[in-house]
Simulated scan of single mutants.
Amino acid sequence: MTVKIGIASNHMIHPTKTLDTNYFDYIQIDYVDAVRHAGGTPVVLPIGDPSEAATYIEMVDGLLLAGGQGVTPVLYGTEPLREVTDTDVYRDRFEIALVKAAIAARKPILGICRGSQVINVALNGTLYQDIYSQMGATEKHNQLPTSWEIPTQHVTTIAGSWLDRLLGHRFLVNTFHHQAIHELGDGLTAVAKSDDNVIEAIGSSDGNVVGVQFHPERMFKTTPEFNAIFDYFIERAQ
């Protein structure tokens, strides 16, 4: 059986030196590679109107939401702080609609970094726009210039949670963010946190909606244990 995984694309809205004003949708190749490695067939979903979300979800067996810009603060009921950088409300609204359509169709969702935050907002949760100024985070949650594939920070899981079963109680992850989940969305539970109390993974009670704040797609080739996250997701989609 072919398991088709819809990967929601990002939107290049700023001109670059080589592309001038040619705007386009794209997805970082590691998401595609991770889905393929786990036995799924990746289907990249271009950004569309929220009214089209259900049609996209009908085409696939599961939904993967990738990293990228911060989520637009007004979508979760607050005004933007000065620490907020690039946002894309068109992507935000479309991905929120995808989440709702996938849940209605009972198709599994995996959110990575921003994707986890989008899931939370779609389910009426809120975010910290900046974990340092708003919650007093003390760890380095953006490890650059250290390379993406190198785990640098410990997370601790909740016993018996989906992530605890896959990767154990405590392990190292990579980290590239300054926003994070604040108030959890409807039906979501925090299943892992960093040592300074930042939510690093979430899950629904039925295990069909999961998200991680770190980037397993950047680590699965050099730290094979992280394949387990994508294997779990593909199994749910079968």
Rank of each mutant, 00 (worst) to 15 (best):
V3A: 01
G6I: 05
I7G: 11
I7T: 09
A8I: 06
S9T: 09
N10C: 13
I13Y: 07
I13K: 13
H14G: 00
K17H: 13
N22P: 00
F24R: 04
F24H: 12
D25L: 03
I27A: 14
D30L: 04
Y31H: 05
V32A: 04
V32G: 01
D33E: 11
D33I: 00
V35P: 02
R36K: 14
A38G: 04
G39D: 03
G40A: 12
G40C: 11
V43Y: 14
I47A: 08
P50Q: 07
A54H: 03
V60E: 11
G62Y: 08
L64Q: 13
G67M: 05
G67S: 06
Q69K: 06
V71P: 03
T72Q: 00
Y76S: 00
V84N: 02
D86Y: 10
Y90W: 10
R91P: 02
R91H: 00
E95Y: 02
A97D: 10
L98E: 06
V99D: 06
V99L: 06
A102L: 08
I103G: 00
A104Y: 00
R106C: 07
K107M: 07
I109C: 10
I109M: 07
I109W: 03
G111L: 00
R114S: 08
G115F: 01
S116V: 12
Q117T: 04
V118E: 06
N120G: 02
N120A: 05
V121M: 05
V121R: 00
V121K: 01
A122R: 03
T126M: 12
Y128N: 01
Q129V: 08
I131H: 07
I131E: 05
I131M: 11
S133L: 10
G136R: 09
A137F: 13
T138E: 14
E139W: 08
N142R: 08
P145Q: 04
S147C: 05
E149Y: 10
I150E: 13
T152L: 10
Q153Y: 10
T157L: 08
I158C: 10
I158K: 15
G160T: 12
W162C: 12
W162V: 15
W162F: 14
L167Q: 11
G168Y: 03
G168A: 09
R170D: 11
R170L: 09
F171C: 13
V173D: 09
T175L: 11
F176V: 07
H178M: 11
Q179I: 04
A180D: 02
I181R: 01
E183L: 08
G185S: 02
D186A: 01
A190T: 02
K193A: 05
S194L: 01
A201N: 04
I202K: 05
S204C: 04
S205Q: 15
D206T: 01
V209Y: 00
Q213I: 04
F214H: 05
P216Y: 07
P216L: 08
R218D: 14
F220P: 12
F220D: 12
F226K: 06
N227D: 13
I229S: 10
F233I: 12
E235C: 10
E235W: 07
A237G: 09
